[in-house]
Simulated scan of single mutants.
Amino acid sequence: MAHARQTFERRQLGLTLRRLREQAGRSQQAAGDVVGKARTRIVELEDGRTRLNPDELLRLLDFYGVAGEERQTVLDLGALARERQKKRAHTDLLPGSFQRFADLEASATEINCYEFGIVPGLLQSLGYVRASIDDGDGIWWESSHASQEQRIRFRLERQAKTLEAPEPKTLRFVITEDALRGAVGSPEVMREQRRHILGLLANNPNLVVQVLRSETYGNPARGSGLTVLLFGGKGSPIGFSTVVYGPSTYFDQEPDTAALLRGFQRIQGLALNPRESARLIRQIDKETDHA
């Protein structure tokens, strides 16, 4: 196991192995013993700062009890992590990409997120989650009740890991006004959603939500969405630009993440401040109550 430069693929592999180890109830010391290395090397592995050879990775997967498609996906991640080429963007084509995005979110110290026309997943109420998944069922994926329930559980678990993290994260969101007035599920679902955001704000001092009014000019990301994840001293920022359909694409090179962060900061400056935003959410709720 050699020391290696931290790359996006190595970070993905490390976070995946950390999740699998925790699910298996194994310690870092026990994992190190399996591959004949010190616990500190497992720490470096899970931080994306070292890599495994194929035999060592197989031994860890056996130790964690990983089988089937998930096992093959981790082996494919391991192969990508051993590549040396430097990429401008990273396209995640492997199964389970949403789980790896959630792993990145869970490991971030700061999340900066802007969405156009939809409430971001981390802020969605249960009714909104269910309705938005219902809207895509049978279109973006094969219709299945079991699959729907699995997607709902995943979204709620993702929220809990991020919003209820032992070490609170700095969370900044900008939501467009039309997302708060939107037609997801039913008027009752939208009312629940607006009140859910207000409840999150009341209970999460590290959460900032700003609303971008519909009549605002100068939005550099109109019609799209973006997320920039920061990791403190554990890695360089990672940027993500949302798409309706297709593979997830990430950016970890400084020119790209700097541009995405500038875009987010410009949108923040155009949006209402947090107090005005909360007032507008309550105002929209009152308007719809009397409609």
Results as ranks from 00 to 15, higher is better:
residue 277 S to Y: 15
residue 271 A to Y: 14
residue 249 T to I: 10
residue 124 Q to V: 04
residue 272 L to P: 01
residue 109 T to Y: 14
residue 12 Q to T: 01
residue 157 E to R: 12
residue 145 H to K: 12
residue 170 T to F: 15
residue 278 A to I: 05
residue 215 E to V: 04
residue 181 R to F: 09
residue 107 S to E: 13
residue 103 D to C: 10
residue 275 R to E: 06
residue 274 P to V: 03
residue 25 G to E: 02
residue 48 G to V: 00
residue 89 A to T: 05
residue 274 P to N: 05
residue 242 T to K: 09
residue 47 D to I: 02
residue 93 L to R: 15
residue 162 T to M: 11
residue 164 E to I: 02
residue 15 L to D: 02
residue 286 K to F: 13
residue 134 D to A: 13
residue 78 G to P: 06
residue 102 A to S: 07
residue 205 P to H: 15
residue 77 L to F: 08
residue 83 E to S: 12
residue 17 L to I: 03
residue 251 F to V: 05
residue 115 E to S: 13
residue 218 G to A: 06
residue 229 L to I: 00
residue 60 L to Y: 12
residue 153 R to H: 07
residue 262 R to K: 15
residue 42 I to L: 14
residue 65 G to A: 03
residue 24 A to V: 05
residue 13 L to K: 03
residue 194 R to F: 04
residue 4 A to T: 01
residue 88 R to C: 06
residue 288 T to Q: 07
residue 231 F to N: 03
residue 36 G to C: 13
residue 69 E to R: 01
residue 250 Y to E: 00
residue 125 S to R: 06
residue 200 L to K: 12
residue 164 E to H: 13
residue 28 Q to C: 09
residue 140 W to N: 09
residue 286 K to W: 15
residue 149 E to K: 07
residue 229 L to A: 02
residue 183 A to S: 08
residue 14 G to N: 03
residue 75 L to S: 00
residue 241 S to E: 11
residue 150 Q to P: 03
residue 97 S to E: 02
residue 62 D to H: 14
residue 266 R to T: 07
residue 149 E to Y: 02
residue 15 L to Q: 05
residue 169 K to Q: 06
residue 94 L to R: 10
residue 242 T to W: 08
residue 31 A to H: 13
residue 20 L to S: 05
residue 104 L to S: 01
residue 175 I to P: 02
residue 264 F to C: 02
residue 256 D to A: 08
residue 86 K to N: 07
residue 50 T to P: 02
residue 108 A to I: 00
residue 127 G to H: 07
residue 3 H to I: 09
residue 240 F to S: 01
residue 227 T to I: 04
residue 267 I to M: 10
residue 157 E to K: 04
residue 129 V to Y: 00
residue 156 L to V: 07
residue 200 L to V: 03
residue 132 S to H: 08
residue 287 E to L: 11
residue 26 R to W: 04
residue 288 T to V: 15
residue 289 D to W: 12
residue 203 N to F: 15
residue 173 F to H: 10
residue 291 A to R: 08
residue 270 L to C: 10
residue 37 K to H: 13
residue 146 A to F: 09
residue 166 P to S: 09
residue 163 L to T: 00
residue 168 P to Y: 12
residue 264 F to S: 01
residue 96 G to A: 07
residue 231 F to G: 00
residue 126 L to S: 08
residue 168 P to C: 13
residue 245 Y to H: 03
residue 253 Q to G: 06
residue 119 V to W: 08
residue 195 R to T: 00
residue 18 R to K: 12
residue 7 T to G: 09
residue 24 A to C: 09
residue 194 R to E: 05
residue 127 G to C: 07
residue 40 T to D: 15
residue 118 I to T: 01
residue 53 N to F: 13
residue 121 G to A: 10
residue 251 F to N: 04
residue 18 R to V: 01
residue 79 A to E: 10
residue 199 G to R: 15
residue 216 T to V: 02
residue 238 I to R: 12
residue 66 V to D: 03
residue 109 T to C: 13
residue 63 F to S: 08
